[in-house]
Design a protein around this nucleic acid. Structure first.
Lengths: 212, 212
DNA sequence: AATAACTTTCACAACACTGTGCAAGTTATT
DNA sequence: AATAACTTGCACAGTGTTGTGAAAGTTATT
């Protein structure tokens, strides 16, 4: 008679396997988002049947995967704080790229596809800080005023996603993508290309840093 | 013993039906791109079985639909000629919007989805004239020089598509979309927002004109 | 009015995949 | 070594769709 009603604790390898499945799914689905469970199972070293021991169904696995990713992204972006709205936006773009470039296909899918609403929930804070940066920038004149804030926020997101999509199709080097996503974000909010380029060059925080 | 080996000519209603199917597909698939043939059949007033009298299979229908659309777009855009590269780009964006805004979902799908290569073939001339405009604009200094021409061409396409995608999700008014797609295109090639806005305002060809 | 062209209806095979049941195996934990 | 936790393999039902076949009906064309 110990603490819990269950006679024994869950085995350690079980949780390891669970993560193996998620890891495999991340890789496999990033290559082909509608790969059958069989493929994921194979990549994880387990049988298809075993997946059902960890996830109720395919959708469950997908949702878990995406929302874990979204949470990771959100927590990485939530620490971005900077008085200048443009810099804030640029930093968000930059970190976003950093977080997501290794799972480009899935990332696009997570935001566009049918899981978009789950992703949306997890990224609510990010979206609202983009919106806020835009509306701040509008106020201080650093951001375009010819497009409504909300619409612009979505277009900015679209611009960043555009780079991501391009990067999902062709193997754009990570460093190039980094600069590009910032350039396009700044472009979307209204900066000219020289302005945007200088903006980046003048700010050390916006330079490319290789992975840890 | 007349001219052709076939004893009689194809019936007129047959070709009408064929077009009814295409028309129905256009509407139905634009609402749900993976709607079953049954749905298209219903919308066209025919039976599912009859579709197979006109198209070998689903893919065939899809391809026909998309490539007809692409041809229409291509022929509408091929008439765009203007000495100034920026204006040329803006005109392309503007006409593009005009041609596809009523089939936003399908348009996005045609360019992104698995039919992309067919679409690509039909739109080759468009793509190359975008590329040319960009490279001309680079030469005369009106377009950004910090991004390689080919990459920029794809990003410009992405920018336009971004507006289209936004427009596919939310019911963006046609007129607003018109201006937006030009603004974003010009933004992508490096113009600042005021520059882009003025650019449009100064040119009568770039103003919104309601449907015929 | 005759005839070929076209459509319909119903039935059915095929496919690719999901999700479940169960018996037999393997492995971590105690 | 005992036991619960986990995995496996196989079989199978279910689903939603595509594509075909064939007989019977309808309609444009001559």
């Amino acid at each position: 008679m110990s603490t819990t009603p269950s006679a024994r604790a869950p085995r350690r390898d079980a949780t390891e396997n669970r993560e193996a499945i998620l890891a495999a799914a991340k890789i496999v689905l990033n290559r082909d988002p509608k790969a059958p469970l069989e493929a994921i199972a194979a990549a994880s070293g387990l049988s298809r049947r075993s997946i059902y021991a960890h996830f109720a169904n395919r959708d469950d696995l997908l949702r878990e995967l995406v929302s874990l990713g979204a949470l990771r992204v959100a927590s990485a972006l939530d620490t971005v704080t900077h008085p200048d709205p443009l810099t804030r936006l640029a930093l968000i773009a930059s970190r976003l790229w950093h977080e997501v470039e290794s799972v480009r296909v899935m990332a696009v899918l997570a935001v566009r596809g049918p899981l978009a609403s789950d992703t949306g929930t997890a990224l609510r804070s990010v979206r609202s800080s983009v919106r806020e940066a835009i509306s701040d920038g509008r106020a201080d004149g650093s951001i375009r005023q010819d497009v409504p804030v909300d619409l612009l926020a979505r277009l900015v997101e679209g611009a960043a996603l555009g780079v991501l999509e391009e990067a999902a199709r062709t193997p754009l080097p990570a460093e190039e993508g980094h600069r590009l996503v910032i350039l396009m974000t700044l472009g979307a909010v209204g900066l000219g290309w020289r302005e945007a380029g200088n903006f980046i060059d003048e700010r050390p925080d916006l330079q490319w840093k290789d992975a840890d």
